[in-house]
């Protein structure tokens, strides 16, 4: 009985350790998570004073923004953003990116004024989410970003 109680308690502690706090994640927690997964995480500031994280995967530099934040700077959503500077922009610009958006999942694409393509993925990290789920979302981002790279001829 004592061992069963102990095992049960350990399982609970393990589960609790993988839960994301109800209010979401702070920027330092996202940095720690990224670095723990073996990725660089450089805290940067936009010209508007917003802090974000610069990182890289699959040979692509991309940024991570924290959104829907409370007064304690705990945020319930993350936004992954990658832009690709093509020499002559994306051929057929908006029509081509619409082809991506109509046939793929997860990442929404757009083209900027220079017809350079961008992709974005928004995820919720709270309430009711875990680091396991966040890891899974990150795998999806990396996989879909690879598809996006192929799609735009990067």
């Amino acid at each position: 009985m004592a061992m069963a109680v102990l095992a049960c308690g350990q399982a609970q502690a393990k589960d609790a350790a993988r839960e994301i706090p109800k209010g979401g994640l702070t920027l330092p927690e996202v940095v720690t998570w990224l670095q723990g997964a073996g990725y660089k995480a450089e805290v940067k500031t936009t010209k508007d004073g917003e802090k974000f994280i610069g990182t890289a995967a699959e040979g692509v530099n991309f940024d991570l923004y924290l959104d829907d934040c409370d007064k304690d700077k705990r945020c319930t959503s993350l936004e992954f953003v990658a832009g690709f500077d093509l020499k002559n922009g994306l051929k057929d610009g908006q029509a081509k990116i619409n082809e991506w958006n109509s046939s793929k999942r997860w990442l929404r694409g757009y083209v900027d004024k220079e017809a350079d393509p961008w992709c974005i993925m928004d995820i919720s990290v709270a309430p009711g989410r875990t680091y396991d789920a966040l890891d899974d979302d990150f795998t999806t981002w990396r996989s879909m970003m690879n598809e996006f790279k192929s799609f735009i001829g990067w």
């Binding site: 999942r105 309430p127 009711g128 979302d137 999806t140």
Partner: peptide, 12 residues
């Protein structure tokens, strides 16, 4: 699109 497994909850 949302991912509901692994680690998904009804709260999510």
């Amino acid at each position: 699109d949302i991912d509901v497994s692994p680690g998904g909850t009804w709260e999510q």
